[in-house]
Measured scan of single mutants.
Amino acid sequence: TQTTHELTIPNNLIGCIIGRQGANINEIRQMSGAQIKIANPVEGSSGRQVTITGSAASISLAQYLINARLSSE
């Protein structure tokens, strides 16, 4: 079954999640098997909405990979 998880990434950290020309986010997508959508910046908001869709296992793996990127910054 597909589930969806949403999280907010601070604007100053979204770059390390996306990577150069989307390299990091594509790697996270491939490794986790989850669909990951990053919302466009919202004016006045300090973060970007990230939506992860997939199986429970792929979502938790995607979250783990995202958190690993954030903590390495």
Rank of each mutant, 00 (worst) to 15 (best):
Q2E: 10
I59V: 14
Y64S: 15
R69V: 03
Y64E: 15
G22S: 12
A34L: 00
S46Y: 08
N12C: 06
E73S: 15
P41K: 12
Q63H: 08
N67C: 07
E73W: 05
M31V: 08
G19S: 03
P41R: 13
G54A: 00
G22E: 15
A62K: 00
G15H: 10
T1M: 13
R69A: 10
S72G: 11
T8F: 14
I38M: 05
L70E: 02
I9H: 11
L7I: 11
E6R: 15
Y64C: 15
R29C: 07
N24V: 10
L7E: 05
S58A: 13
T51Q: 09
G44C: 07
A56G: 10
I66S: 02
Q30S: 13
I18P: 01
Q35P: 02
N24W: 07
T8G: 03
I25G: 03
E73T: 11
V50K: 02
G15I: 01
T53L: 05
H5Q: 15
I36T: 03
S55T: 12
Q30G: 07
T4N: 08
N12A: 08
Q63K: 15
E43K: 15
A62T: 01
N11R: 06
G44S: 06
S32A: 03
Q49P: 05
A23Y: 05
G15S: 11
H5W: 14
G54H: 04
L7T: 04
K37G: 06
R20D: 13
S46L: 14
T53N: 04
I28L: 08
S71E: 12
C16F: 11
S45R: 08
I28V: 06
Q21I: 01
I52W: 00
R69Y: 00
I9A: 02
K37E: 12
Y64P: 05
Q63M: 11
M31E: 13
Q35L: 08
C16S: 11
K37C: 04
N11G: 07
R48F: 07
G44A: 06
S32P: 00
N26G: 06
N12D: 06
A62L: 00
N67F: 13
T8S: 10
I38W: 03
E27M: 12
G54S: 01
A68R: 12
T51D: 03
P41L: 10
I28S: 00
R20G: 07
G15K: 09
N40K: 13
T53V: 08
A56K: 13
Y64F: 06
A34S: 08
I17H: 01
T3K: 15
S55E: 09
Q49R: 13
K37S: 09
Q30E: 12
E6N: 15
A23P: 04
S46K: 12
A34C: 04
Q21A: 09
I14R: 03
I28C: 02
N67M: 08
A34W: 01
L65F: 06
T3M: 15
Q35G: 08
L7Q: 04
T4M: 07
T53S: 11
L70N: 04
G33D: 02
R48I: 07
N24F: 08
R29Y: 03
G47H: 08
I38C: 01
S32K: 01
K37T: 13
G22D: 06
Q21F: 06
Q21M: 05
P41C: 09
E27P: 02
I18E: 08
S46P: 11
S45E: 12
A57F: 09
L65G: 04
S58L: 01
N40P: 12
T1W: 05
E43T: 08
T53P: 01
L65D: 04
A56W: 06
L70G: 01
N12G: 05
I52K: 02
S58N: 12
S60G: 10
E27F: 03
T4Y: 12
T4A: 09
P10C: 03
R20T: 07
L7M: 14
L7Y: 04
A34Q: 02
P10R: 03
A68G: 08
N26T: 11
L61R: 15
Q35C: 08
S32H: 00
E27W: 08
I28K: 00
N11E: 11
R29M: 11
G19V: 00
P41T: 09
L13K: 14
I36Y: 01
A23F: 13
A39P: 04
V42P: 07
G44M: 05
R20E: 12
T1P: 08
R48S: 07
C16N: 12
N11V: 05
Q30N: 15
